[in-house]
């Protein structure tokens, strides 16, 4: 297979970036998208050019590091998959493929397609945890959790923090990410003591980072590689309203 790639190249955070065209041939349909970029980079290196910088690590769809906006979509056209789990068989021979970084004020570009998602870490640091020090725990089975709630909590906890929700959202909103963590904890008994504090602190940090607001378009849910549901955003709204205007 062969493709025409239009790849965003930007030397560093402050440099001016632009789309650069690359033609690539001899691509196997069973290659992953990142393996295709590997092949391109190998060629660039041997031609003495600068290879395309991009984030990636586990290449099995779980670490959340890979992050490309491909053909106008976060992680490309494959449903419920990260970029590393996107295979070239998903494209047609001869396609023109745009490859851009996640775009959000809160995710500044490091280089080319790599962005800084430290904002997510800071949101977690603001309240995305249960305050329990090592050694303070009681026996694990002393705290039964209704299976339905455990399952819902797990659904929310499946978030890999890749940022596709922000990338896909027209407002670069981080509501799906924040709501997933708030939901997980709100659904579990362990999360109750800090429930209101968590919702307030995480939302305050989210706003301070410069993410946009939620317009309920559903783009985040549609592009999330882990299929995190919009119901989590509704739950976050409830948690926040409760914490702000109802809870004592």
């Amino acid at each position: 297979m062969k493709f025409k790639l239009k790849v965003w190249r930007q030397a560093n955070q402050n440099a001016q970036g632009k789309l650069v065209d690359y033609d690539i041939d001899g691509i196997n349909a069973d290659m992953s998208f990142l393996e295709m970029v590997d092949v391109l980079n190998d060629k660039l290196i041997k031609k003495g050019e600068d290879p395309i910088a991009f984030d990636h690590d586990c290449r099995e769809g779980i670490c959340g590091m890979c992050s490309m906006y491909i053909s106008g979509r976060a992680h490309g056209p494959q449903h419920a998959a990260t970029t590393c789990q996107l295979y070239m068989r998903k494209f047609k021979d001869g396609d023109t493929i745009y490859v851009e970084p996640w775009r959000a004020r809160a995710f500044p570009i490091v280089k080319d397609l790599a962005v800084d998602r430290g904002a997510f870490d800071r949101i977690i640091a603001a309240g995305g945890f249960v305050s329990v020090n090592t050694g303070q725990a009681q026996d694990a089975n002393n705290l039964p959790v209704e299976k339905a709630f455990a399952e819902k909590a797990m659904d929310a906890a499946a978030c890999i923090g890749c940022g596709a929700c922000v990338a896909a959202c027209k407002n670069a909103s981080a509501m799906l990410f924040v709501s997933a963590k708030v939901s997980q904890m709100a659904l579990l008994p362990q999360g109750q003591p800090e429930r209101t504090r968590r919702a307030l602190a995480m939302v305050a940090q989210m706003d301070a980072e410069g993410f946009g607001n939620c317009t309920n378009t559903g783009a985040c849910e549609a592009e999330c590689p882990k299929e995190i549901s919009l119901t989590n955003i509704a739950r976050l709204n409830r948690e926040y309203i409760n914490a702000s205007v109802i809870a004592e």
């Binding site: 775009r103 004020r105 896909a168 559903g218 549609a222």
Partner: peptide
């Protein structure tokens, strides 16, 4: 303001109305 640089190519119709 949350997205100062827009995408060069976006296929938003694939994920939202």
């Amino acid at each position: 303001d949350a997205r100062p640089t827009k995408y060069a190519y976006s296929n938003a119709n694939a994920n939202s109305k």
